[in-house]
Simulated assay, not measured.
Amino acid sequence: MKRLRALALGCWLAFAAAGAAQASSGGFCDRTHDLSAAEQDRLLRFAAVLREELGGSADSVTLVSRSGLDLSRFHIRYSHAALAWRSEQGVWAARQLYYSCDERRPRIYDQGLAGFAMGTDDPALGYLSIVKLPPQAVLALRPALLDSSRALHLLGAQYSANAYAYGLRYQNCNQWLVEMLAAGWGDLADGADLRERAQAWLRTADYAPQPVEVGSRFLMLASHFVPLLHLDDHPDADRAALRLQISLPSTLEEFVRARFPQSERVEVCHDDKQIVIHRGWTPVADGCVPADGDRVVSLSD
C-alpha cells in the first residue's frame, strides 16, 4: 500500500526535512512510502483507537492533531490539525486544509479517520492528540464548520507551510483551522472579507502563538529554494531574531483550553509493539512510553 504525500505535506513541511535540498514542491509531492502488511495492520489498529475514542464521545466536533514529519529538533510533536465532525449518520470525517500537488493550490478536504491517522511520516512511531470540546463550543462551531461558503471564504489563495500566524498573504492548514474557530466562536457572518474579520477576532481573543525558535540562518534560507516556504510575510524583527510566529496544533490546543477549560484531551501513540492511550493535558512520554494509569493495547496479539 502506498501513501501519497499530497495530503500530508504538513503545515511545517521542510524546516526539519532538509527542504532546501528539494528544489521544488514536486520533490515532496512525489514522495511515497510502501507500507508492509505489518505496518498497514499497525496503522489501521491505531486508527481504530481514534475511532473508538471519538465514538465514545457525545460531541459532534473534535479537534484532532497528528504527528507528521519529524520536527523534534524544534520540540514540535504535532504538525497537522483538523476538525473531526460526525454526520447525522454517525460517520466521522476530518475536515482540513491540504495542499493539492496536482492542482498546486490549497483545498478543503473531508478525510476518513483511517486516512488521517495514517498520514504520519513514520509508520513505526506515531502520535495523535484529541481535544474534546464542551457542548457550548460545539454548538457555536459546528454551523460555521459545515457552512461550505464560510469554509471556502476562509481558504487563502496561497499556501505557505510556515505562514505568519497573523497574516493574510499566505495560509497553512492550522491557520485555516484557527480562523474557522474564530468564525464559529465569534459568530462571524459569511463574506469575502471573512479571513480579515477572523484574524481581527483572534487578536481580540488573545490568540498568541508561541514563537518557533528556528535557531539557524541556513534553515531560514530554505525559503529561497522551496516554493512552499516563505518569509516575506513575517515581521522583520521576527526574521532577525530567528523566531517565527506560526500556527501549530499545540497553539490551537492552548487557545481552546484557555477559552473552554472544560475541554478534555486524550493522546494516543504507537510504536511497533503497542498503542498507548494517555488522558490529560500532560504529554505522553517521548517514544510512546506509557505512564501509570495509561491504557496499553498490545500489537503482538
Rank of each mutant, 00 (worst) to 15 (best):
K2R: 14
L4Q: 11
A6Q: 13
L7C: 11
G10A: 01
W12G: 08
W12H: 14
F15I: 06
A23Y: 05
S24A: 06
S24Q: 10
S25Y: 13
S25L: 11
F28E: 03
C29F: 02
H33V: 06
L35S: 04
A37E: 09
E39T: 02
Q40M: 12
D41R: 15
A47D: 02
A47W: 00
A48Q: 13
V49H: 05
L50C: 01
R51C: 08
E53Y: 03
L54Y: 04
T62D: 06
V64G: 06
S65D: 13
S65F: 10
R66G: 10
S72A: 11
F74Q: 12
I76E: 07
Y78F: 15
Y78D: 14
S79Y: 07
H80L: 03
H80C: 02
H80M: 02
H80I: 04
W85H: 13
R86G: 07
W92D: 02
C101V: 00
D102P: 05
E103R: 06
R107W: 07
G112H: 08
G115H: 05
A117Q: 11
D121M: 12
S129H: 08
I130M: 08
K132T: 14
K132Q: 14
P135Y: 04
Q136V: 11
Q136R: 14
A140G: 04
R142E: 14
P143N: 10
A144F: 06
L146C: 11
S149V: 14
S149K: 10
R150I: 09
A151T: 14
L152M: 12
L154A: 13
L154I: 11
S160Q: 07
A161Q: 08
Y164A: 06
Y164R: 05
Y166P: 01
R169H: 09
N172K: 01
N174T: 10
W176A: 13
L177I: 05
E179I: 07
M180D: 11
L181P: 00
G184A: 04
G184P: 05
D187V: 08
G191L: 10
E196W: 03
E196L: 05
R197K: 07
A200H: 04
R203C: 01
Y207H: 04
A208K: 13
P209M: 02
Q210W: 09
V212Q: 05
V212G: 01
V212D: 05
E213D: 11
V214H: 00
G215H: 00
S216G: 04
R217H: 05
F218D: 12
M220S: 02
S223K: 05
F225I: 07
F225Q: 07
V226I: 08
H230W: 01
L231I: 04
P235E: 00
A237G: 02
D238F: 00
D238C: 01
A240I: 10
R243C: 01
L248M: 15
T251V: 07
F255G: 05
V256W: 06
F260A: 12
P261M: 06
P261L: 02
R265C: 07
E267F: 03
E267C: 07
C269K: 11
C269L: 09
H270N: 09
D271M: 10
D272M: 08
V276M: 13
H278A: 12
G280T: 12
P283D: 15
A285L: 15
G287D: 11
A291Q: 14
G293T: 01
R295T: 15
V296P: 08
V296F: 07
S298D: 15
